[in-house]
Amino acid sequence: MSDPVIELRDVTRRFGALTVLDGVSMSLLRGETTVIVGPSGTGKSTLIKLLVGLLKPDAGTVLVDGQDVGKLGRAELMRLRRKFGMLFQDGALFHGMTVAQNVAFPLRHHLALKREEEERRVEVALQQVGLPGLGRRRPDELSGGQRKRVGLARALVMEPMIVLFDEPTSGLDPVTSAAIDELIVDTRKRLGLTFVVITHDVQSCVHIADRVGMLWEGRLRAWGPLAEVTASTDPVVRQFFDRRSDGPIKVV
């Protein structure tokens, strides 16, 4: 249970003159929750997009389950992406559809299931995120936290190998954030999947992480098991985890 599912080797990505990631290497292990933290604008979302091939690296390689994501053709990439489920910041649900239709959406496209089987899997996914019986609602009738849960249900319904979370707790109140953290820990334990979570919520990170990477100025400033990183004496890491405004990280 501890071979790497995702490997980054010297990954560099620029936007114009701006080098967002500058030679980042890391191995994410199967069945672990890896949390990537870092101040705003350090390339966390860029990193996650590189994993699923929404962006290509300018240099270096991204390996997912042994495949070089940057070198795949479009069709192969589309196939590789079925190994992923991803929860987007605001859920990225389709507003013209009900909750159940949203969750069923990837199933409809990829598997020709019988109606009852499809309904069953949708209901199971909604149960897993604590929203049983809400299938008939529309996304605009839900709270922000509920929308994220539906987004997670949609990410889980295809039974992915890896689940990516882009800021699962941003914009939520502390209680709902804690509930989402709970849900992440719980789901990971129950399903044994590999989770990659991006956040700048320190509390959330401490709660859910097995392994932590901190990005700063395009590099991986800290990398290791949670306890190791939180005990680090590096002033950059300390400033972030102690939530101080004075220190090497400049607030712009």
Binding site: R81, M86, Q89, H109, M158
Partner: peptide, 18 residues
């Protein structure tokens, strides 16, 4: 802006086709 296009891509559904 709502990231539904990204979501389609990550779900392996080509936005151009669908």
């Amino acid at each position: 802006t709502g990231q539904q296009l990204d979501a389609l891509e990550v779900m392996g559904i080509e936005p151009l086709e669908h």
